[in-house]
Amino acid sequence: MTEYAIDIVNVTKRYAEHTAVRDLTLRVPSGSVYGLLGPNGAGKTTTIRMILNIIAPDSGTIHIFGRPSSDPKITERLGYLPEERGLYRKMQVKRVLKFLAELKGVKGSEAEVRIDEWLERLSLKTPEKDWGLSKVDELSRGMQQKVQFIGTLLHDPDLVILDEPFSGLDPINAQALKDTVVELKKRGKTVIFSTHLMDNAERLCDSVCIIARGEKVLDGTVTAVKEEHGQRNIALALEGDGMHGIASILSDNSLVKRADDSNRFFEIELVPGGDPQALLRRIVESGASVQRFEMIQPSLHEIFLQKVGAGARAPRAGAGAGGIEEGMTGHG
């Protein structure tokens, strides 16, 4: 098995009016949960469509599990949940699911067994009511979303691609989706999803890639991204009135860049390469009684705003900024 589930090298996709994806290089490790983050119109959907071989890149290569993405056998190992969801409205649920499974190379009889299992699992089939026998448009929106999950996962794909999976989900289905993602990872599957909801990404993803205006802004594991791109701030609180005792330590320019009195605690920004442990040792040696000493990590949200929000304010892509704001306040 190759190391990478997805290996995108120098991919570019141009349309008549604009370049949707520019010289993108991206590697998704096998068995990881990977977040593709970016404002609306950043090129996420185009990238996903190229991974799925729905559209072909103008230049560059895409390999899935070490095989070219155009390999028909590869498509059977992929499961895809598109951003805007829909099914054949007039069709019976079970028939839709069977059709989708057959397109992924699952035999009809095998598909029927799995469909029943899944419908029961997501409580669409209970002793009282088997929604599988209903037509799609008789189902509520939440149920249709469940049906669509089933359609994505029915053929037990090794790589699951979810485009904005949380948009429009009610809290119960959102939780079910999170549980499913975690379970998929436990079973060694690779999950890649695009989102502009940083909270979800931060909680779920092993690695992320932020793209904006068709270009990669940054990528890496969530931990690395945070370490690399966030300031390493420290929250410090001391028992009693001991703050004055450490004033000399905080004014040491070789260790502390800036110390900010945040009322209930100090927020301390170390100089680049400054060792937090050295600071802690000096504080403890000074005799102060430490109540709180915490590395505050910047959230992905902040990094995203810092990296994309600032850039988006440049005249080149004013529309992108609106997209971010919308994303931040929108779905939860």
């Binding site: 469509r49 498509t75 805007e84 099914l87 054949y88 409205r89 397109l103 359609g151």
Partner: peptide, 16 residues
């Protein structure tokens, strides 16, 4: 048109 507007087309296109 139905496949396009309901976006089923995208799912199908990712398979065939």
């Amino acid at each position: 048109l139905e496949e396009k507007t309901t976006r089923v087309a995208e799912v199908v296109m990712s398979s065939v």
